[in-house]
Amino acid sequence: MDKLIETIFGITLEMNRNLKEGNFEEFEKLLIDRNLLMSKIDDLKNRQTNFEYSSKAQQLLTDILTIDQLMGPQVEKSLIETKALLNQIKRQKQVSKQYNPYNKQTNGVFLDSKR
C-alpha cells in the first residue's frame, strides 16, 4: 500500500512539473495513471476491515493533497486561457467569412456547351 502511495506522490510531482511547463498532454496521461492507482488503493482498502493508513502514508497523502490544491488554480487559469483562445479563433473565423464569403475567380475560360 505504501509503495502505491509513494508512486502516486511521484506522479503528482511530475504532474505539477508538466503543468508549470505547459505540457498538458503529458499532464493528462499522468492524471489518468494516478487515477488508476487511486482506484487500486480504494479496492485494497475496501477489502480489508478496519483499515488504517500508516503514518508515512498519511504524511504522503497530506503532501499530495497540498500539491493538488496548488495545481487547481493553475489548471483553472489554463482552462480559462484556452477557452478565450478558442473564442478568439471562432470570432476571427466568423469575421473572415463575413468579409470574404466566397473567392471571385479572376482568371479562367467560360465554355458554352450549347454551341
Rank of each mutant, 00 (worst) to 15 (best):
G22W: 10
K40Q: 14
F51P: 10
L30F: 05
R34G: 08
N23C: 01
E14V: 00
K20F: 04
E76D: 14
T12K: 09
N100Q: 10
E25G: 00
D42L: 11
K77Q: 12
K20Y: 02
L111P: 01
L44Y: 07
I32T: 13
T62W: 05
Q74E: 14
Q94P: 03
N103R: 09
L31K: 13
Q59L: 10
S96G: 04
G72E: 14
L30K: 09
T12V: 03
Y53S: 01
R34Y: 01
T106V: 09
Y99Q: 08
Q69C: 02
L31C: 07
R115V: 10
T66D: 10
S54K: 11
L4C: 01
Y102E: 10
R115N: 12
V75A: 06
S55R: 13
D33F: 07
I67Q: 02
V109A: 02
D42I: 08
S55V: 12
E14T: 04
D2L: 15
S113Y: 15
G22N: 07
R115M: 07
F110K: 08
N18I: 01
V75G: 01
K97P: 01
M71W: 00
D2P: 00
A57C: 07
I8H: 00
K20R: 15
R17F: 06
L4M: 12
S113P: 13
I64S: 01
A57V: 02
E6H: 12
F9W: 13
L79E: 09
G10Q: 14
R47Q: 15
N107Y: 13
Q92V: 02
V109R: 09
T12H: 02
L65T: 09
L70K: 15
I8E: 07
T106A: 08
N18W: 00
G108Y: 04
M71V: 00
E26C: 01
K97L: 11
E21I: 11
K56V: 13
K56G: 10
N35F: 06
Q59R: 08
K45R: 03
I32A: 09
G22V: 09
Q59W: 03
E21L: 15
I5P: 02
L86I: 15
